[in-house]
Design a protein around this nucleic acid. Sequence first.
DNA 1: GAGTGGTCTAGACCACTGT
DNA 2: CAGTGGTCTAGACCACTCC
Lengths: 277, 277
Amino acid sequence: MQAIPTPTTAPIHLRIADDIRMSIEAGRLSPGDSLPSIAQLGERWRCSSGSVRAAIALLKSQGLVSTSRGRAPTVRQTPHRTVRSSTRHQVEKDAALTTLDIRKSTGEAETNLGIPIAELRFEATYEIITAVELSEIFDIDPTETILKRTYSHSTTDNTLLSSSTSFLPLRLVEGNPALLDEANEPWPGGTMHQLSTVGVEVMQVKDYVTARAASTVEQQLWKTQDGVPFLCCRRISIDRQGIVVEVSDSVYPADRAELEFITELRAWSNTEREGMN
Amino acid sequence: MQAIPTPTTAPIHLRIADDIRMSIEAGRLSPGDSLPSIAQLGERWRCSSGSVRAAIALLKSQGLVSTSRGRAPTVRQTPHRTVRSSTRHQVEKDAALTTLDIRKSTGEAETNLGIPIAELRFEATYEIITAVELSEIFDIDPTETILKRTYSHSTTDNTLLSSSTSFLPLRLVEGNPALLDEANEPWPGGTMHQLSTVGVEVMQVKDYVTARAASTVEQQLWKTQDGVPFLCCRRISIDRQGIVVEVSDSVYPADRAELEFITELRAWSNTEREGMN
DNA sequence: GAGTGGTCTAGACCACTGT
DNA sequence: CAGTGGTCTAGACCACTCC
């Protein structure tokens, strides 16, 4: 990550972008500050506006700069990241066996996204599909049926705030018809309680995290800026018998989200500790 | 994520990009396939090559398409993702109290990046800094000293394969002078064993994961393509007394890495389970 | 209304790939 | 060598912001 000076033989738009990037990293430009206008940069670097635009476009795709019509480019303001913790798994499990009131209130704590509830829209859609690619992960036949549930929260002006998809083998949940009706959402206590109604206790949760660039549609739905990637999280829930009972996919705009995972380690025994060094 | 048709009033480069994206998502174009050349697309859409270039640039920044000089653009091949599991934390802790031979071999298993060892270059650099922004997380004075250690693996042709930075309060480790000499790296057994030599047992590890777009320098160092974001992982290790003993930052190109975190849940007691319904 | 960025064009030159 | 993408220019028109 050392500072390799951009060679003077490099394309002009890369040299311009590098110069601006260095100004930002050195603190000569702070978040919110305006850059020189494209025309001014073109004069300073003695090049056409097209080359300056290419430089600005690069910085936008790297998340360093924002632009909008009629205003000079600005150094991007990064929003605060909300932490989502894996401790929710245990909290939800603990709440699953409590009263309706407690389940309701823990659910509300979870969906607190810093927006007044009145301006929040919740949506849940149920659909029955065949396993196909999910058959491997559930270890079932590709022709078996699966309940696919999609959840989202958005503001009243249609900005997505959360989005996830959950898959449950239909055979597992059809014992309780209430679990097949999306009108029962939001279900107090969430999936952990839903599964408890058909005798399933989740003992282990595996989270798989990666990231990818945003598509144009995602940028519109979440109202994210250029250069903001998405975190993709696949959660696999496993029951007492080691059977995969739920698979859930979530996405988070990476400029607003941070995922916390806590690993408790087994203590060294005293005899081991004595032999240390 | 539904298919909103791009309006015919939208800029031409967005319509072109959307059309190509739909062809890829519908499977009419498979990874590795060539797209029409920029000139051909310009004829088909009756627009200048500049607009087609803008469309292709957008698809590149979204990770869908690759280009290189002299060849038509192609649908990008996604490399396989290597899983890095949080179970390593326990494995390293268990190994810390074993023999030198076992510690060496578990270390080798960890650094197996699918590259012959002979073509792998390991680098470790030690440096002593003052805490400044890290003082809060370590709960120490900003003027206290910290051992900063940077690690990297690269191929013989200078492509980064792994990169991480570790911070240890100097006061914690200066009891063992061997811990202050980078010539002792790679240390068999890693940080867990190093800490054991000064009587520290890590009981809890917290991982914080987010992502951001790649900078130009990172793209060169890791030889990643446009549109590949980086996963950023901050690991905080906590000892028996609840004190933060290590902070470690790692980055991973998101097209090659997937992080696994396993959460074991406490069982419901039998009396609780009987009340289920 | 002056200044800004966004879109688009037509054309030039260069570097690289394949045959 | 023909065809490809990468860089760069000069200029046009439009949409938007701010004074």
